[in-house]
Design a protein around this nucleic acid. Sequence first.
RNA 1: GCGCCCGUAGCUCAACUGGAUAGAGCAAUUGCCUUCUAAGCAAUAGGUUUCAGGUUCGAGUCCUGACGGGCGUACCA
Length: 546
Amino acid sequence: MNSEMNDYLQQIIAESLQQFDLEELPDIQTEAPKVASHGDASTNVAMMLAKPLRNNPRAIAQQIIDGLNYDEKKIASVEIAGPGFINFRYAEDYLYDELQTILDSGENFGKTDSYSGKKVLVEFVSANPTGPLTVGHGRNAVLGDTVARLLEWTGAEVDREYYFNDAGRQMRVLGQSVQARYFEELGKEHDFPEGGYEGEYIRDIAAELASENKDLSSDSEEWKPFKEKAEEAIFADISNTLERMNINMDSFFNEHSLYSDGSIDSTVERLREKGLVYDKDGAVWFKTTEFGKEQDTVLIKSTGEPTYRLPDIAYHMNKLDRGYDLCLDVFGADHIATYPDVLSGISALGYDTDKVDVVIYQFVTIVKDGQPFKMSTRKANFVTLDELMDEVGSDVTRFFFLMRSPNTHLEFDIAQAKEAGDKNPVFYLQYAYARIASVLRKTTEEYSFSEDVNLSLLKHDAEETLIKTILRFPEMIANAANAREPHRLINFMNDVASAFTSFYHDCRIIGVDESLAQARIELAKATAQVLENGLTILGITAPEEM
RNA sequence: GCGCCCGUAGCUCAACUGGAUAGAGCAAUUGCCUUCUAAGCAAUAGGUUUCAGGUUCGAGUCCUGACGGGCGUACCA
């Protein structure tokens, strides 16, 4: 059901409700029933009013219907069903008019405006440059990008940002690892650092450095040039991977800039002025107990080094200072603990926490050879996203990460993904699109129409079901965007493909009466448009043939 | 111990934020290619939604308590 119809129904219901002399109007909800025989739209207001009006729901429903003043060009019938639902059936013409709007809107069909005028920042991936992106990062990357696309379709102006830290212990060890491999490459003795990065990519970077023939020191304190080279190479690799996955970042934000511009220091000072920060045991503490936590937490260690919470707070203030109406963070379940501290910090300093929201996703369990597989970047025990895409391509990769709700664990069976082929549901969607494209190619050869199309010839059950299904598209996108749950769109796309295939099966296009063929071609075009728009949001290609 | 997420068909998961008969895919069984792409369609089978209470017209969904799994709970990020 589109929002225009929704508004209309709510309006006429509200008018009818005036007869009851209610103190407060109930929240009128209208939705498409699960079962088609229940009509096109349904409302439960009568049941909600049962208690305040002290009457039985079906009697109230009857009174509401009696008081209903509706346009017969839009609504064909209204009836009471079950415990007191009021079901509406659309006028046929309405359906055909709506089908025409899909064709007229074309690649814009599905766009709504609930976020229009809003500036949104989605921060995701944000992996530190210590190694290639793994399958574990994939869920974050694809989820973030697709939520961003959904928000764009609801009118938001979205920026994608990658937050990283190239300072700290991890990066030092990375530099030292490259250094060790570099001297091995030159045939010299050099100790490999404890807990160093063992991946093959480290050797590749070292080999490239060796071939450049620079005069680099073997002094283990002189790891910085190695770190810089490694960071450069790894970032190039990460960017390449993201590009392959159809992801384009608008900005990369280095945590280090928060130190150099003084925001870290000023954040601590401002919290101290509020009396929320104190010194103890040589460390600087944040009074998180004031916000309901069991313990205070350390902001700056006794070594003088901040914990990650402090830059996180400063970073979020930075984002809000840049004028965003909504800042979305995408991160895995292991980061959930820091989030409340960040909110406490920024709200204490007068920022609106409603403008910050988080998309939490549960971990990806890698299943390899039928066994759960523990990954570690340091130990080089991982499957990279590049390896995965080499095997199955980016369409399947993106689809796989989006299929499931973010808050359930995603089981990623490598073997199954690799053999994906005809088992993979992404092909079901693409296949439906390719079939339509094929039929449309054939019809342009066989037909040339002179008269206007008459869509009202589409009276077959399969045709009506298909029209009603594709009309739900804008509402689905808005819901998925609000919930930040791309898998809803995937489920919907399956409904579309399924409704199309049963139409395709029952209703031939070529070889039937010419005006009917013409109408069916239009319906096929509209379906292709919805599939194409949906696949665009998912970042998946819509192939003309398969 | 405490906090967050989860428990739905043999397996992997949905269920449009409390609605009507809980649905898909895979696996199983059975039909359908001289007609627009069989990467498909149609049908059969598979369920006490982990368990026990509660809230209300109505609960897979909300609340309480068990049981089971995952992730946190660091002067690691």
